[in-house]
Design a protein around this nucleic acid. Structure first.
Lengths: 231, 231
DNA sequence: GGAGATAAATGAATGGCATTCATTTATTGG
DNA sequence: CCAATAAATGAATGCCATTCATTTATCTCC
């Protein structure tokens, strides 16, 4: 299956409708579908990502998509894997372990905070179906090994960090006043006091403060698992 | 609006169809909707929770639901708030802070690992609309205060813990072989080695090991924020 | 006690959704 | 060269949340 050359007319402004039957040059492939999906998401959000809209943006009938993906979830998987490649793992093997984890985790959170609807998909996704995601895990695992972590603890540590990252990605999208108790404030005095105190100190976004707090605790805690101090 | 007395016949096996118009005794209320939703979820899962199925199980037309909830998301919110009341906060103020956090976090994760489709709803949900959720926060906040945490750090610490809990709840639902790299194993040797080593030691579920690892790191790290050592 | 407002139900309708299938046409492999 | 396969169309399916007009009962206020 040769990469389809960008057909001269997949969706020309005033196009004649394509007649039924296999076209001379293939119009669709997984890369094109992924790109179109990402554009659609960024312009219309995940609500706007429908198979019909996707087909429309590719100049194709909806049913044509099913020659290249098995389902809409399959499209989400393609998008997820594309995003995994954007997560910054470049510090592993270059910077000290703690700095590398810090870079990775912040970048991971930032990438997926714009794509939280993918999280239920990723969290349960067998890595065998997502090569770029797998490559990310490989880089992180290698970084942990080089830093002296015993093999049997590495996956657990990564899973824990990832859990924190996914949860934090949701937090980024939460409305600012999520903790406003409204009329019930008097019934929850301790909570209200704490929320009020948080609201005072505001050079950083609260979501970033919480993320930093948790991440540093995890890095410190996990750092103690190393067998050598070699960086 | 008086609590509707359990009508003698909301859904009698061989019932005559109710005629249009307001019935003498109200059939629906939010509590009943919540209970029916929970039953439906536990029997058919979240895919089976549709407004039509919910109405059916309540012996009512789908449109009747909309006299009591604004939308399906509103139903999810009711379910979420019900579950929040099942999270164990009883150790706060009784046991030492670290033990209380441990109990709370494990219980929180266990409750929501069976209800991950709610996580996107909770994570972004203004607490003002969820009184039982708010009560949970109040108990946790009070526990942190009593343990000597400065007010301005409490919310951040709770948010971080919660992020970890939500992410970990997803992890519980992941398939066992999620990390099987399949045919790509040779391309990711470090990752494969670490996964293989993890697979060896198996008295506990891997998801529990990871959760414990992360939670203990967070507890230790956050414990250092306290201003006094009083428990 | 009566009237008007409000509450709670039905039933029909809407528009959108993912997905499937029969069909058509082109390419590929033996 | 022919059979199998791949890639498109277009029609159809069944489900979904939600809305609306309508009906009937209850509640509130004068």
């Amino acid at each position: 299956m040769p990469a389809p050359t960008p057909a001269p007319s997949a969706l020309p402004a005033g196009s004649v409708r394509r007649r039924a039957g296999r076209p001379t040059a293939a119009i669709l492939d997984q890369d094109g579908i992924t790109t179109a999906a990402l554009e659609l998401i960024s312009s219309k959000g995940y609500d706007g990502l429908t198979m019909a809209a996707l087909a429309r943006s590719l100049g194709v009938a909806p049913s044509a998509l099913y020659n290249h993906v098995a389902s809409k979830d399959d499209v989400l998987l393609l998008v997820e894997d594309h995003l995994a490649a954007m997560v910054d793992v470049s510090a592993f093997g270059v910077e000290p372990w703690d700095a590398a984890v810090r870079r990775w985790a912040w970048s991971y959170r930032d990438v997926f905070s714009e794509h939280t609807p993918l999280i239920p998909v990723i969290a349960v996704l067998p890595v065998a179906n997502a090569p770029k995601t797998l490559a990310m895990y490989e880089a992180v695992t290698a970084g942990f090994r080089d830093a002296g972590f015993p093999d049997e603890k590495i996956i657990s540590a990564i899973v824990a960090l990832e859990a924190f990252v996914f949860g934090a990605a949701y937090d980024v999208t939460a409305p600012e006043d999520i903790f406003d108790a409204g009329g019930l404030a008097e019934q929850v005095p301790n909570f209200t006091a704490a929320v009020d105190r948080l609201a005072l100190e505001r050079h950083e976004r609260p979501t970033d403060i919480a993320f930093s707090l948790g991440l540093e605790a995890l890095i410190t805690g996990f750092g103690a698992l190393r067998q050598t101090a070699s960086d």
